[in-house]
Design a protein around this nucleic acid. Structure first.
Lengths: 259, 259
DNA sequence: TCGTTTTTGATTAAATGTGCTCGTTTTCAA
DNA sequence: TTGAAAACGAGCACATTTAATCAAAAACGA
């Protein structure tokens, strides 16, 4: 009576599929058939359900993990992806800050690494639209001004036209911004229009803008553009950047700092 | 005398099911039948009850442990004091909010309790200058707008003239503010001038202002005044308020709601 | 003791999940 | 562009699970 009971519950399969997708971000239906020991029809039904939930993205012949690369990582990334690179980039960026500078810090994990380094400074003033930066600096350190604005859950930032109200009233010496995509063709891009608005506006208010981004973002293009490359006084990234990309950006007249 | 107590009370079974789910986060109905030595019908009835309580999630063929909700590492200092009173005050305040209201939430632990109750609402819009409120609502819930401004470490709020920039651009239906002192003579008082400025400014922008404060603040006077009592449409406090204070405020024409 | 209420177990019809077949769509190479 | 192979979705049959209903057993109060 319980010999057929070896069959798993559907939720367990869902879980397994998601775990398999963490190791290998594309799976064929046939692979899942052998891995889960169920029929192709069941695999397809499972994938349809998971797609409906937004956990995977189906393609002909298989399935992709959602959030391939240019999607925004959820705010639990902390020290996960390229932590070493982000740390080195942040340390390099710190050298550009002078005493008593007013520093703008954008959302994004690389900029957040810079915020951690600033926690012990006290002469600079930090202006930020990032709640995570605010959290890092909320135990003391530099004087901090928040931009206000509508709160965007995914990135934990304050974005949109309302941010202009505060930004209009401050002077920014140096702005550090991150990005989800940077390419020679499209410049700087991100997913959310309101987020893009605030990035662009803050850059416009700053005497200098420094782009901080790990090399994986190069050549990527996201949804909304928030500026051309020439808006950046400098670009700091890690030394895993491919030769092709280095040449392309060099031709475009962008000065790269690789750390 | 319990002659043949072969049967357990249902609550005992509930407990056992929950314990089993801690070891193994998915269980078949069949497993529970053998583990608890009851009929499938009883198991299903138990699961239905546990699901209604929110302790488990049923699926076809079995049951899942509910997602272990991320516990807030919230470093609650004052929030633990008079927690019951604050909770009751917050619950009473919640009734004053109508669907689609724009709600202003001030800093302070009593108002923070109200924010927690609003975390499941989605029709209201929250405007706040409190980073703690932002943290509570950062996992979803109502649309949230932050005022921006200078960050005050002690209270984890955004204060000062810069908050005006955003506040000027929003309409507030109902504002909930806390205080450090409330007295018939001096009205509402707090320690920090910049904090006082923002409280007063937000109150001026709101159609209605509700003061939420536990009874220990009555008769106290702090450093900076941020408004008279008649600026509040209502005052909600706990029922430990002394008779003397009740009379004094009644004479001053303030309507108190005691919970 | 009796009658009532609550809980449990059994029965049955409805709902759900799975694997199969079959016609259609997509992909890839000629 | 065209044709073959692979992949897909829809419908069907079969097995399992579930909800609804009812009867029996136990607990309870008088």
């Amino acid at each position: 009576m319980s010999n057929i009971n070896t069959r798993e519950l559907s939720e367990v399969r869902f879980q397994k599929i998601c775990n398999l997708l963490k190791d290998k971000d594309v799976l064929r239906v046939e692979e899942l058939v052998t891995a889960l020991e169920v029929s192709p029809a069941t695999v397809r039904r499972d994938l349809a359900e998971l797609e409906k939930r937004g956990d995977v993205r189906r393609i002909h012949g298989g399935v992709l993990a959602t959030a391939p690369k240019d999607e925004e990582p959820l705010f639990d990334d902390k020290a996960s992806l390229a932590a070493d690179e982000k740390q080195r980039i942040a340390e390099s960026a710190l050298k550009l800050i002078r005493p008593r500078d007013v520093v703008y810090l954008d959302g994004g994990s690389t900029v957040l690494a810079l915020a951690r380094l600033l926690a012990t400074q006290s002469t600079v003033t930090v202006v930020t639209n990032s709640l995570r930066v605010a959290q890092v600096l909320s135990n003391g350190g530099p004087k901090m001004i928040l931009t206000g604005g509508e709160c965007r859950l995914l990135s934990q930032t304050m974005v949109g036209p309302l941010t202009r109200a505060v930004l209009d009233q401050v002077r920014i010496d140096i702005a550090f911004v991150g990005t989800l995509g940077v390419s020679v063709d499209c410049g700087l891009t991100t997913t959310d229009p309101a987020e893009a608005f605030t990035k662009e506006y803050a850059m416009g208010r700053a005497a200098r803008t420094i782009l901080l981004t790990d090399s994986s973002k190069f050549g990527k293009t996201s949804f909304v553009r928030f500026g051309a490359l020439d808006k950046c006084s400098a670009v700091i990234t890690d030394n895993h950047l491919s030769q092709n990309e280095r040449k392309a950006f060099k031709r475009a007249g962008v000065e790269l700092t690789l750390v």
